[in-house]
C-alpha cells in the first residue's frame, strides 16, 4: 500500500510540476495518469503493488467526490436563482453530451469492423 501511494503521489507531483512550469491547461493528476500509462507501456508490465492496490482504491473512487459535492450547498442559492431553467439546461446538456459521442463511437467502431471483414 505504501509503495502504491509513493508511485501515485510521485506521478501526480511530476504532473503538477510539469503542468505548472509549462502553464498547460491540464490538472497535474491527469498528466500524471498519462505519464504513468507511458511508463507502463515502456516497462511492458505493472508493478505487483500497483496491480493489487490500485483497483482497491478505485473501487472507492466515489467516496473521494463526496466532500466537493457536499460543498455545493454553499452555492445552492445561485443554482435555484433562475428556477428550473438552469437545472434543465444542465440535465439536457449532459444527456446530449452522453448520447452524441456514444452513438458516434458506436458507428465508427462498427464501420471499421465492417472494413476489417471486407
Amino acid at each position: 500500500m505504501i509503495e502504491t501511494l509513493i508511485w501515485l503521489i510521485g506521478y501526480q507531483l511530476a504532473g503538477e510540476l510539469i503542468c505548472r512550469s509549462l502553464a498547460l491547461p491540464l490538472p497535474g493528476a491527469v498528466l500524471g495518469m498519462l505519464l504513468l500509462f507511458l511508463t507502463l507501456c515502456v516497462k511492458k508490465g505493472i508493478p505487483a503493488s500497483l496491480n493489487t492496490h490500485v483497483p482497491q482504491l478505485l473501487g472507492h473512487f466515489s467516496l473521494l467526490f463526496i466532500p466537493a459535492c457536499a460543498g455545493v450547498i454553499v452555492y445552492w442559492s445561485l443554482l435555484t436563482a433562475h428556477g428550473w431553467s438552469l437545472l434543465a439546461t444542465l440535465a439536457g446538456a449532459t444527456l446530449i453530451t452522453l448520447l452524441v459521442p456514444a452513438v458516434l463511437l458506436k458507428l465508427l467502431l462498427a464501420r471499421r469492423r465492417r472494413g476489417d471483414a471486407a
Binding site: N51, F61, L64
Partner: peptide, 27 residues
C-alpha cells in the same frame, strides 16, 4: 462547510493520486 472541510479535505486530497491510478486499468 469550512468546519466540515477541515477533515474532509484529506479525502478530497486522495482524488489526485486515485486519478493517476486510472493508468493501471487503462494499461
Amino acid at each position: 462547510p469550512a468546519e466540515y472541510m477541515k477533515g474532509a479535505q484529506f479525502i478530497q486530497l486522495l482524488l489526485g493520486p486515485a486519478t493517476v491510478g486510472l493508468a493501471i486499468p487503462l494499461y
